[in-house]
Each structure stands twice: as structure tokens, then as C-alpha cells.
Design a protein around this nucleic acid. Structure first.
Lengths: 231, 231
DNA sequence: CTGGCATGTCAACAGCCGTTGGCCTACAGT
DNA sequence: ACTGTAGGCCAACGGCTGTTGACATGCCAG
């Protein structure tokens, strides 16, 4: 109970991480050319690519891999820098600290399926198949979940992704608007639960299931959570 | 890629942890009274309680709390020993190393519900309600999942728990024996998924759901995974 | 009473971690 | 051609970690 609060100096992982989350794009880095507060900031940024953009991208890619594979704590800045082929101090220069690097590396797009132009009774099948394919092709998704469970900031990121990318798509299909949130939560519990068992925990029965078997079993569940009347 | 393999000296977390898992009870600790290889070992152990059993129990309780709250990496031996009110070296003396302590601390009993004496069409409701209650009362379960996601040894422990405690119960109820494994996996995906979203990720829509709402929504899903014919 | 052993504390080691500051190099603007 | 600045490396610091060995203390058998 005594040494549980992080000291002022040192790493102070939790609070710094949470504080670093909102500003996810690399803001307030020292080198920022001459013009401050450009009205068309993004246009200027794309117009004048920095010479170090390749390094930045390499760091980010290595960070994504390491965070996904090892989780937040075991993914060390030294290892990430080593994978990117540069010095650890470069990571600090570009992303401030480990929390800032994680914030920058954990911006993902889930690519929720467009269910608006799908027959209502096919939404479940489409939904399950879509996430199954994305989960097997993109290891970032699997890693995001691993980090989201370990780390409070990762959990917050997952909440944001859910609220901003999953919820709206389902709200567009859900018959009763005020139930959309709850229904989206139920759907998330089944989809994330299958991902957890199959890709992270690797429970043998779920690993052995074929692609089509999962769709056949899970789609009716999703369909019911999406369109069935409130029990 | 270079420094990814653990060195011979030092912590070597992964392999030592996996190796320490099978022997979960405190075997091969130095102090073992006078009689070695007692034929009735457990009887002798209960007959002559060691004077340090209180300390052992305190360490184990503190370890369970810390592992559950912080995950494997961030739960430090120093913090565990501090919670237990003893010196960190005692942890090493009684459990060898951190992996051994985790192995000893991660022996849980899930208390799967007895579905044999329940009407078949009520099994889903019973199952969901049972796990919901246990999950909210016992923080160890929540912590086990957190560790199981981070740590390979934790994942293996969850696979064992699933195979030894969950699977048999469901196999007794499942109509087609050779489908029991797959059905148990599907059920685990929904139950663990709800626990993940509600207790670990704390997705607001799943947190806001009431006890009875969860049962009402999830029970038909479990019931279908358990008894509906293969789609 | 005395020796042995379990119990426990203290201090330290070596290693890894995030993080910092100084120094060098090469490019771009003038 | 010169200079400022961004990009990059190197070495180090302080702190925390798991782990170890030497040393104290108290219980119990003989």
C-alpha cells in the first residue's frame, strides 16, 4: 500500500499514459519547421514531408509489432528501437516517452462492415465473417486486445474505438435507437470473446473450429443481439 | 531479434514459468522435516503443520491479489512481500522464484455449476447466472483472465482449467458427445467475452447492463450452443 | 542446558529499464 | 561558401527488478 503510488520522477506509467492518450498524432515535438500554428496544418505537413518520416514510420511499425506481441510492459523501447534499426533516444525525441509512443502506435482503424446496404437478416453473417477475416489477416487487432487487457490506457483506447467506430455502425441498423448501445455491447462481448479464446488464449476447441463453423454458430447470436426484440 | 532469447542467468521468465507450472503445490522446498518420500505425504503434511504455514498463506493471498490487479509483469515480488508483511527473500525461499510463486498462486477452482440435475432447457439460465455471481464476488477470476491474456503460462493455466473443470461438466449435458468440445468452446467464448468486456475492458454498455438483463440476453445463446443441433 | 534447524531480516549484486544530455554529421537556406 | 538546424549515435544516470548469501532469532529434540 505504501509504494503503490508512482513517484513524481521516474516512469509513472499509468498517469502519463492516460494523459498522453488524447493527443495521438505527434504534437509538440521540438522540430516543427518555421511556421507555428499554420491554419492549414495538415496540408502543410503533407506538402512538406520531413526527412525523418521514414524513421518515424519504422519506429511506429516496430512499436506496433512489439506491443502486440509482448504487451505494454514487456515491450521495451530498446527492443523497438532495435527492430527499427535506430537508437532508443530517437524514440524519445519523436514520441516523448513510452506512453506517447504507445498512444501513437495504438491508433487503429477497425473497418467496421457497412451493414446499411445489407439485407437485415444477413447482417449477422456479414458481421461475423467480416471480423473473422480481419482478425486473421491483421495481427494488430489481436495485439490491441492483448494490450487492452493489460494496460489501462489500452483499455481506454478500446473503449474509444468501440464508441467511435463500432457503435455508430450498429446504431444505423438497430431498430430501436435507445437500445443500440446495449446491443452493441452484447455483440462486442461475443465477437471479442471468440477472438480472445481463439487467438489469445488459444483454447483448443475454439482454435480447431473452421472458419465456416464459427460463422454458422455465431451469426445467429449476432443476428439476435442486433434485431431480436428485447427479452 | 538478437536479445529476444532469455539469457541463462537472470530471470528467464517464459521458459521457467512454463516449466514451473506442472508442479503447482510447493514441492522441493528445502525445509521438509525429517522424513523424505513419505508414502502418505499429504497425510503427513496435514498431520504436522509447519510453523510457517501462516506466512505461506499470507504470501499466496498477497500474490493472488497483486497478480490479479497488476498482471504478471507489474506484480513485483517486493510488493507482494510487503503486502504479506515479510521480507522478499522469504518468497524465494518458499516458492523458488517468481514463476514458482505464480504457479502456486494461480491454482483456482472455477466451481462449474452442476447441470446434471437441472432441466435441460434451464441449463443456459443456470450457467449464465452462476458465472455472473461468481465473477462479481471473486476477484481472482477476473485477475486470472488478465494474467491469462498477458502471460503464456497464464494462458496455459486457463486451458487446463477449461479442459479439466469446464469441459467435463458440459460434456455430461451435451446431447452429442463428439460435439461437446466444440460447444464448450463456443460457450466459453460468450462467457469469457462478457467477462472481458464488463470487468476488464469496462466497455460502458456492458457495464451498465443489469444482472438480469445479461441473463436474459445471454442465456438463450448458451442454451443454443449447448443443446441446439449443429447448424 | 545445548545444539540443530526452521524462520526471518538485512544488505547487496548484477541486470535491465526509461530517460537524458552531449556530441557528431549532413543537408537546406541564404 | 557558410551557417543553422534537424537527424542520429554514444555513454551515462538513477531507479527498480529478481535473486542471493550472510547473519540474527527463536523453537524444539536430545
Amino acid at each position: 500500500m505504501s509504494d503503490h503510488a508512482p513517484s513524481a520522477a521516474g516512469s509513472a506509467p499509468e498517469e502519463a499514459l492516460a494523459a498522453a492518450l488524447p493527443g495521438t498524432s505527434d504534437a509538440s515535438v521540438p522540430g516543427d519547421s518555421g511556421a507555428p500554428a499554420d491554419p492549414a496544418a495538415d496540408a502543410a505537413r503533407t506538402a512538406r514531408p520531413r526527412r525523418s518520416d521514414a524513421t518515424r514510420a519504422a519506429i511506429l511499425a516496430a512499436a506496433r509489432d512489439r506491443f502486440a506481441e509482448d504487451g505494454y510492459e514487456r515491450a521495451t523501447i530498446r527492443a523497438i528501437a532495435g527492430d527499427a534499426g535506430i537508437d532508443p533516444s530517437m524514440v524519445m525525441r519523436y514520441y516523448g516517452n513510452k506512453a506517447g509512443l504507445f498512444a501513437a502506435a495504438s491508433t487503429i482503424e477497425v473497418h467496421a462492415p457497412d451493414l446499411a446496404h445489407v439485407p437485415r437478416d444477413e447482417a449477422g453473417v456479414r458481421f461475423v465473417r467480416h471480423f473473422l477475416e480481419h482478425w486473421e489477416s491483421d495481427e494488430t487487432l489481436r495485439g490491441m486486445m492483448r494490450v487492452g487487457v493489460t494496460n489501462e490506457a489500452g483499455a481506454q483506447r478500446m473503449r474509444e474505438v468501440f464508441a467511435e467506430q463500432i457503435n455508430p455502425v450498429l446504431a444505423a441498423v438497430c431498430p430501436v435507437p435507445e437500445e443500440a448501445r446495449a446491443r452493441a455491447g452484447l455483440i462486442a462481448s461475443q465477437i471479442l470473446g471468440m477472438a480472445l479464446c481463439r487467438y489469445v488464449l488459444r483454447l483448443p476447441p475454439t482454435v480447431d473450429l473452421s472458419h465456416e463453423e464459427i460463422v454458422a454458430w455465431l451469426a445467429p447470436t449476432i443476428q439476435r443481439y442486433l434485431t431480436a426484440e428485447h427479452p
